[in-house]
Amino acid sequence: MTSAQTTALPDFDLERYLPYRFVVLAARLSSKLARQYKREFGISIPEWRVLLNVGYTEDLSIRDIEQRVSLERSKVSRAATKLEAKGYLAKQIDPRDKRLLKLTLTPEGTELLTKLIPIADKFQAELNQILGEDTDALHLALDRLMEETD
């Protein structure tokens, strides 16, 4: 207890607190994978997330990506602008809602993803090997949590 603290804190096991553990683990995993694609392709974590979502989800706007990956709109927008400048994405104003920018892959973006996905697949295989037979159970538990927190 510090000198400024006059009452005892309630018992709390931070190391078993799931939200804390998920955030720390997600940051570690994301950084480990990011080192690989950043070194080889110069892509940042937000750029990777935007590129991946545009490539594997149809009819996406910046707002959609922001909601899907829990990134601030400004980070998604900056990442999309950088990807557009590198020639990987194209932006178009949504004809149904002029406030939305729709994102699509360019041929160069498609080519980049064909090089990035094997890196992600190898990383996933490494994680599956670490988890072994617990992999399916983890996916089920994560699916349940994702559904409950929507």
Rank of each mutant, 00 (worst) to 15 (best):
D64G: 09
R73M: 11
K38D: 15
L89C: 06
R39P: 00
G87K: 04
S77N: 08
R63Y: 12
L101W: 10
T81W: 13
K38R: 10
S77W: 04
A34M: 08
I93E: 13
P46A: 07
E58C: 06
L60G: 01
G55W: 00
K82G: 10
S74R: 15
L83T: 02
Q36I: 13
L100W: 12
L101K: 15
K86L: 10
G87L: 02
L71S: 03
R63V: 13
A90Q: 11
G42D: 07
A80H: 04
A85I: 04
Y56T: 03
S44V: 03
F41M: 04
I45P: 05
R96Q: 14
K75G: 02
S61E: 03
Y56E: 11
K38M: 12
A80Y: 02
F41R: 04
F41S: 04
I45A: 11
W48C: 08
D59W: 05
I65F: 05
R78K: 13
Y56S: 05
K82M: 09
S74I: 15
T81D: 15
E47F: 06
L71G: 03
P46D: 06
K82Y: 09
R78I: 07
E72M: 09
E47L: 04
N53S: 11
D64Q: 07
A85C: 10
K82C: 08
G87M: 00
I43G: 02
L100G: 05
T81M: 11
R68C: 11
R96K: 14
I45N: 04
A80G: 05
L60I: 10
K91V: 05
Y56I: 00
D94H: 10
Y88S: 04
K38L: 12
R78H: 15
